[in-house]
Simulated assay, not measured.
Amino acid sequence: MRVLGLISGTSHDGIDAAVVDFALRDGVLHGHVTATASTPYAPELRARLRAALPPAATTLAEVCALDTLIGQAFADAAGAAPRVDAVCSHGQTVYHWVEGTRALGTLQIGQPAWIAERLGVPVVADVRIRDITAGGQGAPLVSYLDTLLLAGLPGHPAALNLGGIANITLPGKLAWDTGPANALIDAAVVRTGAHPAGYDVDGALAARGRVDEGVLAALLAEPYYQLPPPKTTGKELFHDGYLEPFLGIEPADLVATLTALTARTVADAVRAADVDTLVVSGGGAANPTLMRMLGAELPGVRLVASDELGAPRDAKEAIAFALIGWQTLHGLPATLPSCTGAKAPRILGTITPGAGPLRLPEPAEAPQALRLTVSEEVAR
C-alpha cells in the first residue's frame, strides 16, 4: 500500500511530504520511500498563520479561513506527489493545550476533505486527539516509528528530532519534548532581522556569535525543563514573545546562546537516559553549529543521521505520518503508552473517504520492526 504522509511542523514554514510503499512480511514492515518533497507556504499564508498563533488573539472566522486555506495548500502539495492509495495528513498544529504535565486538548487545522476531493483516496487526519483522550500527551507521535526503526540496534540507542521543538525517543520506553530546537532560534532571527531568510542559515550566525552565559542561565531556569517526562510543549510556551527580556544583546550572540540552550537541554536528557547512540533528524540536524555544540556536550555519544536507517532527516516526520496512516487503515494502534503516557494503545485519527465506496484493507498483525529503503531519486 502506497501512503502519502503530510505534515507542517512547529516552525510552520511549509509542508513536508513523503510517499512510502509498505509491505508486511514475517512481522517486519518494509517501507520503500519513493518520493519526498517540501512545499513552502505562500508568504501571505504564513504571515496570516503567524498572526493568529498564540499568544495573539484571533477569531473563529479567521480559524475557519485558515482551516480552508491550509487544507487547500495541503491538497496542492498532495496533488504534486506520485499516485497513492491513501494519505495521512497531520495538518498544522495551532494549539496544544497543556497544563503542567497533562495534555487536555490539541487543535490541528488544514481541512482533510480538500485532499480527499483532490486525490479521490481516503485521508487519515486529526491523529493526536485520540491519544490525549486516553490520558496521553498526543506527542511525540514519531516515537512509534522510532521504536520500530531502532529495533535491534545494539547498546542504548535513542532518536532525536530537531524541529521547531526537540523531542527524544527511548525506544519502547519513553518519549518527550526536551524543549525548543529551532523555535526560539528562528524567532530571534525574525525579531532582530539578523537574516532575511528568517532562520540561521547553516548556523552561521551562531558560529559568529558568543554564548552569553548569564542569559543562558536565565533561559535554563525555565520550569518546563524540571518537569518529569512524558511531557510536551510548543509555541504556546516558546513563542517569539518569550525572547522579550533578552533582545538587548547582539543578535548573533542571542542566536548563539539559543543554539547552546537547545544543545544543553537535549544533552541533559540524553545523559540522564544513559544513551550511547543518538539517531538525529529534523531541520536542526542540518545546522552544523548546533550539531557541533551537541557533540561537545556529549563526547561519549555516537551521533548518527537518521538517513543511515533509511529515513531522510528532512522527511522522517512525514514518513512517520505515512506509517500512522498505514496502521490506522489496517486497524492497528500507532501509539506506545510508555512513550506518550496513555493508559493503552489507540488507533489514531479519523478517515475522510475518497471517491466511491470506502474499502479498507484486511486487518493486519502489528509489525515488530520497520525497515526503510530509499529510492535512487530520493537518495539523490
Rank of each mutant, 00 (worst) to 15 (best):
I168Y: 06
G193M: 14
V190C: 12
P180A: 05
K231T: 08
L227Y: 05
Q226I: 00
T178Q: 03
K231D: 04
K231N: 09
T178I: 01
A207E: 07
T233L: 07
A175D: 00
L220E: 10
G203S: 00
T169N: 04
T192Q: 12
Y224G: 03
V190Y: 11
G248W: 02
P196K: 11
G172E: 04
Y224A: 08
P196F: 10
G198Y: 14
I165K: 06
L227R: 14
P180K: 03
D200L: 04
A217L: 00
D253L: 12
E222P: 00
R210V: 11
T192N: 10
P223M: 10
E213R: 08
H195Y: 05
E244S: 14
R191D: 15
L170V: 05
V215K: 00
G241W: 10
L254I: 15
P223R: 09
R191H: 15
H195L: 10
G234Q: 02
A256E: 13
L216I: 02
L170G: 06
K235G: 08
G179F: 11
L227I: 04
L243H: 07
N182Q: 13
T178C: 09
A204C: 13
K173P: 00
L205I: 08
A218K: 00
I249C: 01
P171L: 01
V255P: 08
R210A: 13
T232Q: 05
P180N: 01
L184M: 14
D202G: 02
G193Q: 15
T178L: 00
D253I: 11
G241S: 12
L237P: 09
N167E: 04
W176I: 03
W176Y: 11
G241P: 13
A204R: 14
A256P: 10
T169L: 07
A252W: 08
